[in-house]
Computed example of a mutant assay.
Amino acid sequence: MSPITMVEGRRLSLTNLDKVLYPRTGTTKGEVLHYCTTTADALLAHLADRPLSFLRYPDGPDGQRFFTKNVPPGTPSWVKTCEVPHSTSGPTRQVVIDGLAALVWAANLVVELHTPQWTCRAPGIADRLVFDLDPGEPATIVECCLAARWLHARLTADGLDVHAKTSGSKGLHLIVPIEPAPSERVTAYARHLAVEAARALPDLVVHKMTKSLRPGKVFIDFSQNSAAKTTAVAYTLRARATPTVSTPVTWDEVADCTEPEQLTFLFSDIAPRCAAHGDLLAPLLDPARARPLPGAA
């Protein structure tokens, strides 16, 4: 029988807790759930009021993986959902994680957690801007850090507050709190800066997705600002060979990065980092830190 546990007054059936999800490290599903509960304060803060997309990998990263935005079959009636506009097939409903019980339920499905740059209260109106810096082999996160430093300076010159986190995969995410603006306008501004970066750093950066242009360079993906796109949430585990986490980092860590291992964080690294730094992305949650995009009325 699957163990039944009570979380915030909700009965949850937790399955296959001894199942090894990450063979290289021997990490079990029970350890994954424990990570989510011990990191819940930070995770929940960044999930609040945002429709959730799931990358599910129930048999570990080497097994079947599938991405879904719809509410999964069997979702308990008490799990919050919100209606999300859809450009072609009409509105759909997606899960919103609003507490520890819902987070444990989602973690039991074995998922990466992805959200858009807008909240359920204002679909398509972004309250943050994102750049996904993706290295093309043999480039690594080291090269991403060089591109990130240029973007940091450029965004700061425009009066914006810039924060960084690892993707938990190969690259780096830059996140900027902004005064609410239509996703189309945010995407246009992000594209403008990506093009500018490619012109300023032609040996390092590309802004086009064309794969033939990307080896050895950093692709600045601005498209995740589109209303239909999502980005991995801070502190989510990733479906990688080892249990890596999308981890907030300091700008000193970005500046000092000379080896990819310096910015590779496993789930066991997160509690000590939170104890030392707190939530480095907490400023994203403070409306007072949001700034208007340049040229906004």
Rank of each mutant, 00 (worst) to 15 (best):
K170F: 02
H152I: 03
S53T: 15
L109G: 12
G9F: 10
A271D: 13
I178K: 07
S87A: 14
A227G: 14
A126G: 11
A200I: 07
V142S: 04
S226R: 15
D41R: 15
Y35S: 05
D256Y: 11
Q117A: 12
R185P: 00
A106P: 01
L133F: 02
E31Y: 02
V186A: 02
G60E: 04
T236F: 07
A157S: 13
T5H: 09
F265E: 01
G74F: 05
T156Q: 14
T92S: 10
P177V: 07
V111A: 08
P135G: 01
S2I: 07
I97N: 03
Y189P: 07
K69D: 07
T27A: 08
R199V: 09
I141H: 00
P73G: 10
I220T: 02
I4P: 00
V130W: 00
A232C: 12
R24G: 08
P182E: 09
G30I: 06
W118Q: 06
T81R: 12
L172N: 00
T236R: 08
F67S: 13
T75F: 07
C82S: 12
R238M: 04
P215D: 05
L266A: 13
L201T: 09
K29R: 12
A153L: 10
N108P: 10
P116Q: 07
T236Q: 11
E253K: 06
A126S: 15
E179M: 10
L129T: 08
I220F: 08
C144E: 00
G159F: 07
C82V: 14
L172K: 01
D132P: 01
A153Y: 08
M209Q: 14
T15W: 05
L33Q: 05
F131G: 00
S226Y: 03
P215W: 09
T244W: 06
G168A: 05
F222I: 05
T210H: 09
K217L: 14
K211G: 01
L44I: 02
R154Q: 15
G74M: 09
S268E: 12
A190H: 02
R24V: 14
V162R: 01
R240Y: 09
D256F: 06
M209K: 11
K211T: 11
A139D: 05
P283F: 03
A241L: 09
T92N: 04
P138F: 13
G30S: 14
H152G: 00
S53Q: 11
I178Y: 05
K208D: 12
L113N: 02
L129I: 11
D134R: 10
H86S: 15
L129S: 10
R128L: 10
K29Y: 01
R149P: 02
V245F: 07
L174S: 03
A181H: 08
E253C: 08
P292F: 00
V79I: 15
P260Y: 03
C257N: 03
D161I: 12
A181L: 05
G295C: 13
P3L: 13
K229S: 13
Q64K: 12
P72C: 11
